[in-house]
Design a protein around this nucleic acid. Structure first.
Length: 299
DNA sequence: GGTAGACCTGGACGC
DNA sequence: GCGTCCAGGTCTACC
């Protein structure tokens, strides 16, 4: 079946999927030829389906197998969240209009950051980006999905080992143990943090998903995220940006490099210099940093 | 409040 | 093929 979900204007499908590296992490897939984003989704009734998302006029076109009304509504809700379809960036566009380095923001509909359907998945993935190289993040995520995910249902004639799998539920990771996570998934010292979060969420003691829609002030929300083991200032800022809060900058070694080449002729800088350069952007700091038209491109 | 050092993996490099 | 070095944030202990 196929359906289309409208987005608040302006909206640009490609800008969202290119907003950061998430589309390169399982269970996302991306087909460059057709500009189609795939995602293996586990519905609340445990059915696993494959979503194929592509550009539609002012929204997202979703192709998947036949779903009942409840399943369709759940799939639509997931896609709407992943693409932030209802998000409004008009205030950011107004604030950045006079800044040449952000002049393209409105035209390209920049602002939305691709999300996973659950905050649990985004927190785990963010922890897997810390203190490692991108290739290792991809490997760890792949292994986590392969080991604990559920294979796509109804994949007739296909070896179940090769079938796409959903992102693991907190229960699936909680049922494992830190040693297995370390040895099989190769997450290293992150294992206890990942396992602990999974246990907290699976037990129902910690309603992580409630943070997606809570109206806590950003500072409070950041404090909450920082209580999660493995989430420090960088990870918290990254998660805030995903949650649509832009008051903090995810400062990692790459950010230091960008700022160093932008304003300090490649001389090493600290996070203080990064903060200073974006201070004037206030609640749009994160967006201004993230979508800045940087001189440096790694070369 | 600031900082040194440990944590772990995987890739690059030299032998 | 083996050993060594290095990059990459968070956390803890310490000043």
């Amino acid at each position: 079946m196929k359906f289309t979900l409208p987005a608040r204007k302006p909206f640009n499908f490609t800008s969202v999927i290119d907003s950061h590296g998430w589309r390169q992490l399982a269970p996302f897939t991306y087909d460059e030829g057709t500009n189609t984003l795939g995602y293996t989704l586990r519905l609340s009734n445990a059915r696993v389906i494959e979503l194929k998302m592509s550009d539609a006029k002012d929204g997202v076109s979703v192709e998947t197998e036949r779903l009942n009304k409840t399943e369709r509504s759940e799939a639509a809700e997931a896609v709407a969240w992943m693409f932030g379809l209802d998000m409004d960036f008009s205030a950011f566009y107004a604030a950045s209009r006079a800044e040449p380095k952000l002049a393209r923001a409105k035209k390209q509909s920049l602002g939305r950051v691709l999300r996973s359907p659950t905050l649990f998945e985004d927190v785990i993935k963010t922890i897997l980006t810390t203190n490692t190289l991108w290739g290792a993040t991809q490997n760890m995520t792949r292994k986590l999905v392969d080991e604990f995910g559920v294979a796509l249902g109804g994949a007739t004639g296909r070896n179940v080992d090769e079938a796409p799998k959903s992102f693991p539920t907190p229960e699936a990771i909680a049922a494992s143990d830190p040693d297995t996570l370390k040895e099989k998934i190769r997450v290293g010292y992150r294992a206890p943090a990942i396992h602990e979060l999974a246990v907290r969420v699976a037990s129902g003691k910690y309603d992580l998903e409630a943070l997606k829609t809570c109206d806590l002030p950003t500072l409070e929300l950041r404090k909450e995220l920082l209580t999660i083991n493995g989430v420090g200032p960088y990870a918290a800022a990254n998660l805030l940006l995903i949650l649509g809060r832009s008051d903090f900058i995810p400062i990692d070694s790459w950010a230091l490099k960008l700022v160093s080449h932008e304003w300090y002729r490649g001389k090493p800088v600290t996070s203080k210099e990064v903060e200073k350069r974006f201070e004037k952007w206030g609640e749009y700091k994160g967006l201004a940093f993230w979508f800045w038209d940087w001189k440096y491109n790694g070369g």
